[in-house]
Design a protein around this nucleic acid. Structure first.
Lengths: 273, 273
DNA sequence: TATTATTACGTTAGGCGTAAAGATT
DNA sequence: AATCTTTACGCCTAACGTAATAATA
């Protein structure tokens, strides 16, 4: 029976050129390597080397064994990796969401209903979420529209309403509500990783520029210290949030700013089997 | 590192259903099998079994490992077999000939020039020889016409002339020479394994029937005891051969009965490297 | 009771490293 | 002298089988 460890040494020999270097690389003695190569030859049943008194090199069989052996080792590695992947995939709930708030809401619920489960979540654009859902690359999908779902079930999950948040001295501060068209052209502070909100803002306010901030802390400092408007949603207590930063919140009335999120779940409960 | 022996036991377990049967099949003790399965689980890094107190079965990981493992084991086997094949192929000269006589002649020469070599020879029809030559499935080819050969070289090898051999009381016994058309309709004794001669006879003498004899000894006895005509060629001493069986030899004058054999050799001498 | 998996345990075979030999550059 | 492969040899681990345990059908 072929020994993959010995085969690995053979391949290392092909790469390094001398048994001593193989021994060094594997942290074993040179006699061990010699014996491994002899055992390998025995296993193949044909000579693999041309032996001089103190030189050894691959013959044509050996070269073929190395080439085929590389493939075999790769396949062996793939074999265990695939099983591992399968296991990992089965024990993790993969969630793709188009926005942060409904994802957080879902994670909250999951930590209650599936306390042990590993959850792998990511926020991305609508199309990406849809693609993942259709390719079975996720177990749950959150989108701002009903999800066409043959298998599994899709249902209304939550609503979220968008506000802008401006300092009291801002031109719009006195307003009760606004429309995208009115704020198009203003520059905004914006968090990254907002999923479909990001794209929506750029589409509805093509004349605006957005100062992206990846870090929550940096974002908060900018909100506090600058007079640039930013966004907030009713996932938070909007008025208290605005007050904390010395600002006022103004509702956006466009239909697109008032979103209903839908969630789809693949069938088969947790943990799977 | 994955141990193929352990993997083989896992697969055997999938087939046999119980560790005891695996132990029996491998002629080892049950604890050995238990340990092998534990070691395998360790290697994969994920559980492969659902364990009861005295029951054990594959879980989903285990089933995947079995399926992938089967492939891997097959590939491991293929790996050593291919190297073996390569070695065998390199150390044997494969000869395909369309007829016995030039093959024997070649073998005689090879035993002189390549005393150590293993020679694998076979006699078959022209098309088969040509196909083998073109597919690199043989090192030397013998055919009754010049061989179209990009690589290697082709040259005239020998001539052979066909005779019929009849008892003195036979209707044709007095003739000096004959043509196929004249002997069409007579029934003949014929050896098997004659390659293209066989087909030639059937084509030139469609009205004749041929009593095929696989064994040389049986053939000779029939030649001696029956009055059926048979064939002989000048690869032997035709007159002496005929006399030994109390017969006379008559030359066939058709062009097709007087053949020039050509031989083609793949490049690269012997032994290869 | 018969079968099965697993643990415990003692023995042994085989694998490893050290040391040394032989050879080459 | 330095490097390299291979053999010899002794130790020691680790793999194996026997026996025992526990549980099930």
């Amino acid at each position: 029976m072929l020994d993959l460890y010995e085969l690995e040494q053979l391949i290392s020999f092909a790469d390094l050129g001398t048994l001593s270097r193989v021994a060094e690389a594997f942290h074993i003695s040179t006699p061990s390597v010699t014996r491994a190569m002899q055992s390998l030859e025995e296993g193949f049943g044909v000579p693999l080397f041309i032996r001089g008194k103190n030189r050894i090199e691959l013959n044509e069989n050996g070269q073929a064994a190395v080439e085929l052996g590389r493939k075999l080792l790769q396949e062996a590695e793939d074999t265990v990796n695939r099983v591992r992947m399968l296991d990992a995939r089965r024990n993790t709930i993969v969630v793709k969401s188009c926005a942060p708030a409904p994802l957080w809401e879902l994670l909250k619920k999951l930590s209650g209903s599936c306390p042990g489960a590993t959850v792998s979540s990511s926020i991305c654009q609508n199309e990406e979420v849809l693609a993942a859902w259709e390719n079975d690359d996720c177990d749950m999908a959150i989108l701002p529209f009903p999800i066409p779902s043959g298998e599994g079930k899709t249902e209304k999950f939550m609503e979220e309403h968008l506000y802008i948040c401006v300092p009291p001295e801002h031109a719009l501060a006195g307003r009760d509500e606004v429309r995208f068209a009115e704020i198009n052209g203003f520059n905004f502070l914006l968090r990254t990783e907002l999923g479909f909100w990001d794209l929506l803002c750029r589409q509805k306010m093509p004349a605006s520029k957005f100062l992206m901030q990846a870090e929550e802390f940096a974002f908060q400092e900018l909100v506090r210290s600058s007079s640039l408007p930013c966004f907030i949603t009713d996932y938070y207590d909007v008025d208290r949030w605005a007050a904390d930063y010395g600002r006022v919140a103004i509702s956006i009335t466009d239909a697109e700013a008032n979103v209903t999120f839908y969630i789809a779940c693949k069938p088969g409960g947790w943990p799977r089997r």
